[in-house]
Amino acid sequence: MSFLNYLISGLSLGSIYALIALGYTMVYGIAKMLNFAHGDIIMVGGFTVFTAISSFQFSPAISIITGIIVCTVLGVVIEKVAYKPLRNASSLSVLITAIGVSYLLQNLALLIFGSSSQNFSSVVTMKPWQINKQLVISGETIVTIIVTTAIMIALTLFVNKSKPGKAMLAVSEDKGAAQLMGINVNKTISVTFAIGSALAAVAGILLCSLYPQINAYTGQMPGIKAFIAAVLGGIGSIPGAMIGGILLGIIENLSKAYISTQLADAISFAVLIIVLIIKPTGILGKKITEKV
């Protein structure tokens, strides 16, 4: 029974990773950049909700909406200010800029909220679900799994059926050709950043509800893990990010339970390396043929 417990909590952690990984993978697919600041958007989302609840006494629902709006705007602003001038620069310059943005967000949070961890009160009010004596699923876990599943279905429908979604696919396939077909590339990139950041905000709120602590570095490790998950699933691929995230969460939780708590991170990183050695573009990554 305890195995099932670990599996379910792994699933909920993994679906949070998947949400964050979606942001990474969409931005990578379209702008061909590793957005290292993405992890810190999670932290901003968490802190916004934290402030809204504790300082302004907003209701959880309004706080969550505020958090999502703040992160969406922030993501678009970051793209406009920091990444847009570097559209044609080398990928290393963009990477360093993203790292700069990440430092900026972390240090702003440090200045505003201080370096000690704050207690985050969970936004979920659902009671734990007791199936039998051993198997108890917390409300947070259930909400996390339901919310992420809904978001993933909505996102898949959005990308494959709607016009802006199809524009995103077209831009990620071939920017030049998409532009010739009348797609506004800049607008599409902005939409991608907006969606990615909104997902990060949701992930941040869920993460802080599951592990009720928040500080300036809250987003860092989940950010890296989600990044790993995105690569594991094949970066640039949306279903890949979902699979990679959930897989990583389950692997991490099971190795924490059965192998070693300290080595759980090392094991999930090792899985990534093994997968990449066998399949160099990740689980669902497309094989790229090279031309001279």
Partner: peptide
């Protein structure tokens, strides 16, 4: 890891660094 290229190589080196640390 020499089979890997570009960003994939970058992420694997990151993973190796973290594994060594752990």
């Amino acid at each position: 890891i020499l089979r890997l290229k570009g960003d994939y190589l970058a992420i694997v080196t990151l993973a190796f660094g973290e594994i060594i640390k752990k």
